[in-house]
């Protein structure tokens, strides 16, 4: 049989791909199609779906109530991405410029907190941020630095803080990888040619780290957009993101078709954003190289 396969290399490639393809089909593509199919059906009064075709679920996505939540989620995810980039870039740069032996230790130090479950870490933030019994407010009040407790919990500030904290390593690691590969000779060459430090950064370091920045931004933006644990816990359930609306459709509102439609629209938007983002940045890179 292998002699036959040896002559038919494409068939052999397909056979090798089969397990992975099967896996992806059963656990990824098929559920996705179920979600898509549900989004065109009517809701059962108490959950489930009624098999009759409708486009109403997609119309409801554009209902201002839900559409505004979409916009709000984009805003929160955007701010989160920007802050992690501002915090993460210098950190990645710092790690990348240490001696090789210390880099491993620093990367490990960055990862250690993330061996603890995300939910537990989010609850840990609660003990810091609570208005009246949180560590920060209690300390500041007892030191007499503030008269009234600061409002650190149950608002957008707390949500963004939780998301930045949660996704920072996802920004740092790809930028670190990009900076790590950067040839120091290029920076020396730029300096030898009398480029100022600012110019060295913007003309040499930044363009070469851009693939890492793009990858990091996608890795932070996408999960932040769909976040639902962080707004539910740190936001006090008082302000919703689209992830909460979707989870509510399944767990509380018995409206699976609408939940499916919302997920599908969100997935499409993310996919489109990803494609545009990658196309734009890779074009830039080509020009600069």
């Amino acid at each position: 049989m292998y002699r036959f396969l040896g002559k038919h290399t494409s068939l052999r490639a397909w056979l090798l791909l089969l397990p992975a393809a099967l896996w992806l089909f059963v656990f990824f593509v098929a559920p996705l199609f179920i979600v898509l199919a549900y989004s065109f059906l009517e809701r059962g009064t108490y959950g489930g779906v009624v098999w009759s075709f409708t486009l109403e679920n997609f119309q409801r996505v554009f209902d201002p109530l839900y559409f505004n939540t979409f916009l709000r989620s984009f805003y929160i995810a955007g701010v989160t991405t920007l802050i992690t980039l501002i915090l993460g870039f210098p950190l990645a740069g710092y790690i990348a410029t240490r001696p090789a032996a210390r880099r491993g230790t620093l990367v490990l130090a960055l990862m250690i907190p993330f061996w603890t479950n995300f939910l537990i870490r989010t609850y840990a933030w609660l003990t810091l941020l609570r208005t009246n019994t949180g560590l920060i407010n209690v300390t500041l009040l007892s030191l007499g630095l503030i008269k009234e407790p600061l409002s650190l919990f149950g608002n957008d500030f707390a949500i963004i803080l939780g998301l930045v904290y949660g996704w920072l390593p996802d920004m740092v690691l790809p930028i670190f990888a990009a900076l790590d590969r950067l040839d120091p000779a290029l920076i020396e060459a730029a300096r030898d040619l009398y480029a100022s430090e600012t110019k060295v950064f913007w003309r040499v370091i930044w363009p070469l780290s851009l693939p890492g920045v793009v990858a990091g931004s996608m890795l932070v933006f996408i999960p932040s957009l769909g976040a639902f644990v962080t707004p539910a816990i740190l936001g006090g359930g008082k302000s919703l993101m689209i992830g909460n609306i979707i989870s509510n459709q399944f767990l509380a509102a018995h409206d699976w078709p609408f939940g499916s439609a919302l997920s599908f629209v969100m997935m499409t938007v993310m996919l489109a954003a990803t494609l545009i983002y990658f196309r734009v940045t890779s074009g830039k890179e080509r020009r600069q190289l």
Partner: peptide, 13 residues
């Protein structure tokens, strides 16, 4: 039921 849930979404948003 769907009216209750829709209004609840409005409250929470």
């Amino acid at each position: 039921e769907s009216l209750y849930q829709r209004l609840w979404d409005e409250v929470k948003s």
